[in-house]
């Protein structure tokens, strides 16, 4: 089977206390001070085949979200490289790509265009997206007035109707109500098929068990274990 994602020796460094004023830069320059560095990801090697469903687990601050951010292209790796085949859709944070001043309607278009959809495609699926979200009443309200649940509903409704090959989901579902979570998960299940790849970050082991064909446990920026769901989850529970 063909690979959907290949990651080679990937490292990500963040600098702590990046200066924002010229006044902060001067001492750094004059006294040759260095900023503190933090390696969020350390030597990640990973390949994910097409059609695979990868669950990622790990404690807070372990590098899960950074990894998804790199795969989605939002931030660049400091070292190493990665390749992706196919269209990527990312649900990294609640309302990723939404603009607070835009109405729900406008955000459907904004998010769709960001994901590289044609306007005609969005128009074509618009009613379906709205029906799925169940927030038709608030379609012309700016999303900044939405509750976090409505936000997630809209974001997810657009995302599940996108045409993607790789879907990245980062703990977004935790915010919606149980019914909507179920609805989304079954929609993802329907659209998954044999060629679509899913990467799911979650603290909910039931969801991980249900969706993952493979689970990855990451801690302190390093891959600790990768394998079948149950064995990795058991390992995780023992080691955290």
């Amino acid at each position: 089977m063909e690979n959907a994602i290949v990651i080679n020796n990937l490292w990500k460094k963040y600098k702590i206390g990046q200066p924002k004023k010229l006044g902060d830069v001067l001492p750094l320059f004059l006294f040759r001070q260095k900023l503190k560095e933090f390696w969020a990801l350390k030597n990640i090697n990973l390949s994910i085949k097409k059609g695979e469903r990868l669950g990622i687990i790990g404690p807070n601050g372990s590098g899960k979200s950074t990894l998804l951010k790199i795969i989605s292209g939002v931030t660049a790796p400091s070292l190493g490289n990665f390749t992706i085949t196919g269209k990527v859709a990312a649900l990294l944070e609640v309302g990723t790509g939404f603009h607070p001043d835009f109405t729900g309607r406008e955000n459907i278009y904004l998010y769709g265009t960001i994901m590289g959809m044609e306007l005609s495609e969005i128009k074509h699926r618009f009613d379906e997206i709205v029906r799925f979200s169940g927030i038709k009443k608030f379609l012309d309200t700016p999303v900044k007035y939405y509750s976090s649940g409505m936000y997630v509903r809209l974001a997810f409704s657009v995302a599940v109707h996108l045409d993607w090959d790789v879907l990245l989901v980062d703990e977004v579902l935790a915010v919606g109500d149980v019914d909507f979570q179920k609805k989304c998960l079954s929609k993802i299940e329907q659209s998954l098929g044999s060629k679509k790849t899913l990467i799911l970050v979650s603290h909910n082991f039931d969801v991980i068990r249900k969706f993952s064909s493979k689970v990855l446990f990451i801690k302190d920026g390093k891959i600790q274990k990768i394998g079948k769901a149950d064995s990795v989850i058991n390992y995780y529970l023992k080691h955290v």
Binding site: S72, G73, V74, A90, L92, E93, T96, G97, H99
Partner: peptide, 9 residues
């Protein structure tokens, strides 16, 4: 910044 930090474009 909300677009820059969350979307690849």
């Amino acid at each position: 910044s909300n677009l820059v930090t969350k979307i690849a474009f």
